[in-house]
Design a protein around this nucleic acid. Sequence first.
DNA 1: GATTAGCACTCACCTGGATAGAGTGCTAAC
DNA 2: GTTAGCACTCTATCCAGGTGAGTGCTAATC
Lengths: 351, 351
Amino acid sequence: MQMDERKQKILKAIVQDYIATAEPVGSRTISKKFELGVSPATIRNEMADLEELGFIEQPHTSAGRVPSDLGYRYYVENLMDPFDLDEERKRMINQELAKRLDEIQEVIEYTGKLVSQITNLTSLVLKPQTRECTLKKLYFLPYEDGKAIMVTVKDNGMVENSIVDIGTDTTPEELQILANIYNEKLSGSKASDLKKGLLNELYRELARKRRIIDGMLTILERMFDQKSGDNTERVYLDGTLNMLNQPEFKDINKVKTLFSIFEENRKLQELLAPKDKGEGLNITIGSENPDLAFKDCSIISATYNINGKQIGTIGVLGPTRMDYRKAISIVDYMTKSLTDMLTNRYRNQKT
Amino acid sequence: MQMDERKQKILKAIVQDYIATAEPVGSRTISKKFELGVSPATIRNEMADLEELGFIEQPHTSAGRVPSDLGYRYYVENLMDPFDLDEERKRMINQELAKRLDEIQEVIEYTGKLVSQITNLTSLVLKPQTRECTLKKLYFLPYEDGKAIMVTVKDNGMVENSIVDIGTDTTPEELQILANIYNEKLSGSKASDLKKGLLNELYRELARKRRIIDGMLTILERMFDQKSGDNTERVYLDGTLNMLNQPEFKDINKVKTLFSIFEENRKLQELLAPKDKGEGLNITIGSENPDLAFKDCSIISATYNINGKQIGTIGVLGPTRMDYRKAISIVDYMTKSLTDMLTNRYRNQKT
DNA sequence: GATTAGCACTCACCTGGATAGAGTGCTAAC
DNA sequence: GTTAGCACTCTATCCAGGTGAGTGCTAATC
């Protein structure tokens, strides 16, 4: 059995109607609402076929049909009309983003906020991956006895500070030396390569100051240990409460499992991690999802870049019965817009 | 009609049983579970009195009794047995907090996490109020053309950085001058006084460099404007999902209103803002609460200090039917413990 | 006078059966 | 190939009756 044009039309009608109403859709409804020029009986026959093909299913015998994950997949790939945001909204988005462009963290989080507001779904944003960035500059500032403020500048323009233990016997001058070595010799290393590189470099350069160096290494080592725990905050969520408005989450237990996962940053990261393909939009529907807890959810995501380098992901999560047209167009537009803006803004910081 | 000892015992029994079971409690249950030596009939008479006094109420005629807000209030103030955490747990708490003492933000947030874990309720933590802190040190570091990294150290030990626009015609040396003036003359000003003080000081000291100063002022002004938006993040929540386990929140709509408020930082701040009394524990029960959304919730809170100066609040939020004994003892212990630790740790940073 | 046993009463909740309604699948006619 | 008709299935809703927890009142008891 093959998909012919009429079957496609019917599947499309089912998906659209179900997305709109959240109720199983029957043959009568279709023949009335969508003008296919055939009677309910005919549609019933076609629906039986569609069910056999696995595109739709019946919650129970006397109910209408509901799209299966496969049905959504087919709809998304073959049937969905393209959908463009209206210019008004595009302008609004660009304007709001531009306002916040100076603070990279803020503009990215705000993007998530916009996505969830516009879609009425939950937005997920994977923020720039600290580990993948290279460190451009390293400074030390005095803090108090035995401690110093370490300020790091990443190549994507992010600035972070942390307090490091230096012991009471390290002088500001020694710190200065460490920073200078770093800034002159190692600027641009990957954070993950840093330890090794710095070790070698330091031993070579300053073999005579071994004692100091040993101390420094401990500091840096500890710092990177600390900073790898930084992963915890990498996914930014917004609009989680929107899920409560979806009829599929009227059951408190579903809410509980879903929200529990929301608190597990690691799982969310896996979910958003750029797939092999990397480029373009990623759509994961229902049980295509690795985690069982998301078997009734779909995720649309896309990566954004700075200077052609993927640095994060924007996604939107909703019930499988979500408005794919809208969600996709928004995620698509948002990532492109963000990419453009960030690239323009941080163009001069190419490494 | 007056409260006599037996009425008190019965009220106490009702409150305790209802807290434990979340079911309206009847006369029979009381005479069986709690050994008062009187028959259900007697208890019924007393209960009728207690109801007349406003301490308990009946959901419907044929149901048992439930404590009213007034009843909880009476229980908390007159009937509740004191409750001490066991030493084991205290040690655990102290140990966990001590581990994180170096990062003031972290130790405070972790306190919230512990509170919610131990109580199985939602914890609210009001973090140190940036505005009230004084600025201890100010540094500038090079960033890129026209911008600099400004690093500030507060008297409570917090370090923050932000990127400031300095225009292309400001030299590092000029920045250095600004920072020096600040560090020498104004260290310890309140952030809110800073602008005025710095203005005067700068004009007096360096009248001849008016052009630079004007630029600087703009920077600082903007920075403080930015940082006053910092309020948004001042309340830290943990264990919000615990609320979903409470039977009183099996209705999705209640969850929705509650969680919506959780996202309104301002409201939470009002809730936690130290009351006039300030000192000691604050207990707000049900409709004593200013916001209708919390009419079924109670909040226990207390302030923590550094060097005797109130800097924040720790609170726990749960249904009115929460375990007040446990909640109170934990909030109490936590604030005291945190106060001790912070005061010890940051003793040397008195302003 | 306080306490208690006894009893009638109320009300939420559960159960089972009847009913309505939506939707199907099949068959036979077009 | 399409459609009208019809029997069938299954859910949701309603209603009646039964159950049980709990009460309030009254009269007997301590």
